[in-house]
Amino acid sequence: MGFKLLSKLLVYLTASIMAIASPLAFSVDSSGEYPTVSEIPVGEVRLYQIADGVWSHIATQSFDGAVYPSNGLIVRDGDELLLIDTAWGAKNTAALLAEIEKQIGLPVTRAVSTHFHDDRVGGVDVLRAAGVATYASPSTRRLAEVEGNEIPTHSLEGLSSSGDAVRFGPVELFYPGAAHSTDNLIVYVPSASVLYGGCAIYELSRTSAGNVADADLAEWPTSIERIQQHYPEAQFVIPGHGLPGGLDLLKHTTNVVKAHTNRSVVE
């Protein structure tokens, strides 16, 4: 069995187990497998329904001669939608809004960016022009300005110390501490036991640490421990890039980060 097929099978099995364990909360999309990078042309966006009122959005972007996937989250909030992270750029984010209108038909009224990198804030200006209120932590807003990236308009308070959590509509926002970046936030959907790890969490097929220019490698494993301790009931975990899975993604990420750190020390 090929690795790609095995990865998709694991996603399907995880979703099936969740649907059985929580039949009222989960209505997993039966329309197909989780979209992969090879299936999404740059400039297009796919939506994948995880649970009743919960979707991931998947886009792709060219970077350094390669094409990478990027995940975000959409959560229903009454007759409105909360968006977590842009679709990595203005063109993708405009396509995301169009796809949401086509498939869901509810307005996106608020959006949260989970850290300051372009795959999370690139497209904020498109959201703002569409009347979406954009939010991020003060740290993310400051770092985005320093980096020359787009800056969300509103500040999220109460997320300055490791372990801080605040309720934001249908989700809980959690600051686990520094990891992929010093400002990275985690998003949890309690009604569906869905954990969105953003770039602080890796997919299972990833074996290298990737972009760690703004990471705190020493603190990252401790931050992941905080996530595990705060959300032990999480059933569906979405990484910032690639295929979702279960809580095993947290341990896998820790292993990859520690291996990278150990290699760096040896070198």
Rank of each mutant, 00 (worst) to 15 (best):
G53D: 14
P232G: 08
A130D: 06
Q103W: 05
V108M: 13
L249K: 02
P138S: 14
A213G: 09
V256M: 04
Y188T: 11
I84V: 11
A98P: 06
T182E: 06
T36G: 08
T93D: 00
G122D: 13
E267K: 12
P221Y: 06
P107V: 08
Q103K: 07
P41F: 04
V257M: 15
L81R: 01
L13S: 10
E267Q: 12
G65E: 11
R120Y: 01
G197H: 00
S16L: 09
I17W: 04
V108N: 05
L5V: 05
A200E: 05
K251V: 06
Q229I: 04
I20C: 12
G197Q: 00
D183M: 00
S38R: 08
R142C: 15
S160Y: 10
S181E: 00
S70W: 00
P232F: 02
T36R: 07
I238K: 02
W220K: 01
S208H: 09
S56G: 07
T140R: 01
E147P: 10
A136F: 03
L173R: 00
F174R: 13
P244C: 10
W55Q: 10
W55E: 01
N92C: 14
E33L: 12
A59R: 12
N184W: 00
I84Q: 00
D77K: 05
H260M: 03
T254S: 10
G122R: 08
E147C: 13
L250W: 12
K8H: 03
G210Q: 03
S162I: 05
A259V: 06
L96W: 01
L96V: 12
V11D: 09
E225G: 10
V146P: 11
G197I: 12
D119C: 01
S193L: 09
L143R: 12
F116G: 13
D248P: 05
L156A: 06
A218K: 15
V11N: 05
S139V: 05
G89D: 11
L9A: 08
T60F: 03
T207I: 15
Y12V: 07
L96G: 11
Y48K: 06
F116H: 15
G240W: 01
T86Q: 02
T86W: 01
I227A: 07
Y48Q: 06
R120F: 00
L247A: 09
D248T: 11
V112K: 01
L204C: 15
Y135H: 04
A59Q: 03
V266W: 14
A133L: 14
R120S: 09
R263L: 08
T60W: 04
P152S: 11
W220E: 02
Y48M: 06
L243T: 13
G65S: 11
L5G: 08
P170L: 09
F3G: 06
E44L: 12
G198L: 00
P232Y: 12
Q103D: 07
T114E: 00
L83A: 07
E147Q: 06
V189M: 03
T207F: 04
P41G: 08
S181R: 00
E172S: 14
